[in-house]
Amino acid sequence: MEKSTNYYNTFIEVAEDCLLTKAEIPIERGNKKTVATIQFYKIKENPYLYSSDDIVFDIYVSKNAVESDDIEKEKALFFSKGQPCLRCSPLPKRYGWGIHYNVEGKIAIYAIESDEYSKLKVDAELKHLKAMRSSRK
C-alpha cells in the first residue's frame, strides 16, 4: 500500500521556533545542492505544478542517483514505507516559507512577510498545520 505525504486544502505555517520575520532563499553548500535549495527552486519556479509526493521523491532520486529505468520500481518501494512530509522541510522550519496545498494537493510556497502568507494564515477554509520545530522544548 502506498503511503502519501500529500495534504489537500492545507497551509503549513512556519515553525514556531523559526526566528525569521523575512523569508530567506536557501543557498548551496559548496557546489552541492541541499534539500532546501532543491525544494525551493522546484516549488518556487513551478507553483501548483507538483505535489508533496513529487517533491519528496525527486529529492530521493537526486540524492541517490536513481536510474531512469528504475524510477517506477523505486517509487513503489519508496512509498511503501512512510516518508517525512513537508512539515519537516527546511523551508518552513528554518527559512521562513509557508507551504500551501490546493484542493488538488499541488503546492506553492509563500514568504512569511508576504501578503499572500498573511491571507493564507487566516483562511478558515484551509486546514492549518505548523511546520515541525527544529528544537525540542
Score class of each variant (00 low, 15 high):
101 Y>N: 07
39 Q>C: 05
97 W>P: 04
115 D>H: 03
48 Y>P: 00
60 Y>M: 03
53 D>S: 06
71 I>V: 14
90 P>N: 11
59 I>R: 08
125 E>G: 11
119 K>T: 11
65 A>D: 13
125 E>H: 13
49 L>W: 01
45 E>I: 01
125 E>T: 15
124 A>I: 10
51 S>C: 11
79 F>R: 09
116 E>R: 14
90 P>R: 05
41 Y>L: 01
88 C>G: 05
102 N>P: 11
58 D>G: 15
74 E>P: 02
85 C>G: 15
38 I>M: 14
69 D>R: 13
54 D>P: 08
118 S>Q: 15
66 V>A: 12
101 Y>C: 08
125 E>Y: 10
71 I>A: 04
66 V>T: 11
73 K>G: 01
64 N>C: 03
115 D>P: 00
56 V>Y: 04
65 A>N: 15
48 Y>M: 08
78 F>D: 09
100 H>E: 09
110 Y>F: 15
99 I>W: 03
87 R>H: 05
109 I>V: 12
74 E>R: 11
81 K>P: 00
71 I>H: 01
80 S>I: 02
39 Q>N: 05
96 G>S: 09
112 I>L: 13
109 I>K: 04
108 A>H: 01
84 P>D: 04
58 D>A: 13
70 D>V: 05
42 K>T: 13
54 D>K: 05
112 I>C: 00
63 K>H: 04
61 V>W: 02
41 Y>T: 08
86 L>S: 09
112 I>H: 02
50 Y>M: 00
57 F>P: 10
88 C>W: 13
85 C>W: 10
103 V>S: 15
73 K>D: 10
122 V>A: 03
119 K>S: 14
83 Q>H: 01
111 A>R: 09
44 K>H: 06
59 I>M: 03
86 L>T: 06
82 G>Y: 03
91 L>T: 06
42 K>E: 12
83 Q>M: 05
78 F>Q: 04
57 F>A: 10
47 P>V: 09
99 I>S: 06
114 S>T: 15
118 S>I: 06
72 E>M: 14
119 K>E: 15
83 Q>D: 00
73 K>V: 12
86 L>W: 08
90 P>M: 05
43 I>C: 07
69 D>I: 06
105 G>L: 07
84 P>M: 04
63 K>T: 03
54 D>N: 15
55 I>E: 05
95 Y>A: 02
87 R>G: 00
